[in-house]
Design a protein around this nucleic acid. Structure first.
Length: 423
RNA sequence: GCGGUCGUGGUGAAGUUGGUUAACACACUAGAUUGUGGCUCUAGCACUCGCGAGUUCGAGUCUCGUCGAUCGCCCCA
């Protein structure tokens, strides 16, 4: 059987690759605007970097590509960006920088062993940022704004920003106990997953699709934010107002990863093009993660955007022009010896003209067809006459004008034709 | 991990109750047009129906398995 690509992976061909490149450029521009610098971390890390004790998310517990070589270390292909960045932050002692917070951005491939469907691949790309070293509602608002305005600049509509606060450690801990107590009396009515979540992460029960519409879940006690958390959240909302970022508070939003505290947010698209995957952007603040990973007791916040989902939506909004490959010159060679044509070709390239030639001395018609397919602006014809007189027959594909010029005049003539054209 | 649909040439696709050489269109190649293409006309181009097994005299058409795509559940970006 012929080789085939691994399920959930894909080849990026020219007709789509340029979309990634455009978005990457735009994202990097936004990183620049907001004072973020790009970071690249390894594709794989020691498994412990991603897997902490008491993790409950599917992503960490059953979707990681974990392997070892020679039975030595357990390694894992990164399923998300934050953990690796935090590891790097600690390992490189970035916390010692006098200028905190440290603002980092990345565009990297992630790997999760999930069932593939539209907008959900096993290898996919995330653009993300992490702002580490300070806890300040200004930062929370700015992080959300960066992502939101990036998406708006692409030209996406039908976006909805959802935010919520999970509270600080104290209020979260208290709420957790409250929920455990409350849900324990309904334990038999919970779905299988939620029974497991009950003790580890009862917050997830609140947005479980199986159980969320059951009466006793709806009536579950609401989170009581501590005074500090509430004031903090109010300020985040206030700054979002100032920045003109529209948002919706959704108290069911708890996010999948376990390390979030206080501010969490998500951008969903109501555009149907994305199929079942409505979330294109998600993130939140993490007060404990850095300390848990062996760093100082400081807070961070970040988000990640799913680039493939972004492209599906951007395509649906016709954000991208149709991909069209173009070259400047196509050299048609009718002479048996290709030396002269080759010299002309190199001349063109040395003067920054994108140029190709026919390698096979095919019929004139066939070469013209190639020239059309490659969308060559100029066609250069070289035959016996041209070789003998050291000339080139130059045809402008747009105007159809044709002339025979001396070889040494070629570049000047092309420059001039283009100059005239763009006037 | 679970469930639905689908898988025919480079592409889009027809294939009736299982029956000899698997439509049609686009694309491609060559010629008409021996140095001028994108139009037209003519001709050519499909060891084969994702892969494997089974039922049958006979399977693209039925059954099972497998791989993949897609949609949904779950999860998440």
């Amino acid at each position: 059987m012929a080789y085939q690509k691994v399920k959930g992976t894909f080849d990026l061909l020219a007709k789509d690759l340029y979309k990634f490149n455009l978005l990457n450029d735009l994202f990097r521009h936004f990183l620049d605007l907001y004072g973020y610098s790009e970071i690249k971390t390894p594709v794989f890390e020691f498994t412990d970097v991603f897997k902490k004790d008491n993790d409950t998310s599917d992503m960490v517990t059953k979707e990681m590509y974990t392997f070892s070589v020679n039975n030595k270390d357990s390694l894992t292909l990164r399923p998300e960006g934050t953990a690796g960045v935090i590891r790097s932050f600690i390992e490189n002692k970035m916390y010692a920088d006098p200028e905190l917070p440290i603002k980092l951005g990345y565009i990297e491939e992630m790997f999760r062993h999930e069932n593939a469907q539209k907008g959900r691949q096993r290898q996919f790309t995330q653009m993300g940022i992490e702002c580490i070293g300070d806890k300040n509602p200004l930062i929370d608002a700015e992080v959300i704004a960066l992502g939101y305005f990036f998406l708006k600049t692409i030209g996406l509509n039908d976006l909805k920003v959802l935010i919520n606060s999970l509270g600080d450690n104290d209020s979260r801990l208290k709420y957790k106990e409250e929920l455990i107590e409350y849900f324990s009396q309904y334990k038999d009515e919970l779905c299988f997953d939620c029974q497991n979540r009950l003790l580890k992460n009862p917050l997830r029960i609140l947005d479980c699709k199986n159980d969320a519409n059951k009466e006793f879940v709806k009536n579950a006690p609401k989170m009581k934010l501590s005074k500090e958390s509430e004031e903090y959240f109010d300020l985040v909302k206030h700054y979002l107002d100032v920045l003109n970022v529209p948002y919706e508070v959704n108290d069911k939003l708890v996010r999948g990863l376990d390390y979030y505290t206080d501010t969490v947010f998500e951008v969903i698209s109501t555009n149907e093009a994305n199929g079942a995957q409505s979330t294109i952007f998600g993130g939140g603040r993490y007060d404990n993660l850095i300390k848990e990973m062996g760093g100082p007791d400081i807070s961070g916040i970040g988000f990640a955007i799913g680039v493939e989902r972004l492209i599906i939506l951007a395509d649906a909004e016709n954000v991208f022009d149709e991909y069209k490959k173009e070259i400047d010159c196509y050299v048609i060679n009718l002479y048996e010896n290709p030396d002269y044509a080759l010299e002309v070709l190199e001349d063109l390239r040395n003067n920054s003209y994108k140029a190709e030639m026919d390698y096979y001395s095919r019929s004139l018609k066939a070469q013209f067809k190639s020239s059309d397919r490659k969308n060559a602006r100029f066609v250069l014809i070289i035959g016996e006459d041209e070789v003998n007189s050291n000339t080139i027959t130059l045809k402008d594909s747009l105007t159809k004008a044709q002339e025979t010029i001396k070889h040494e005049e070629l570049i000047d003539r092309l420059d001039q034709l283009l100059e005239d054209y763009y006037e």
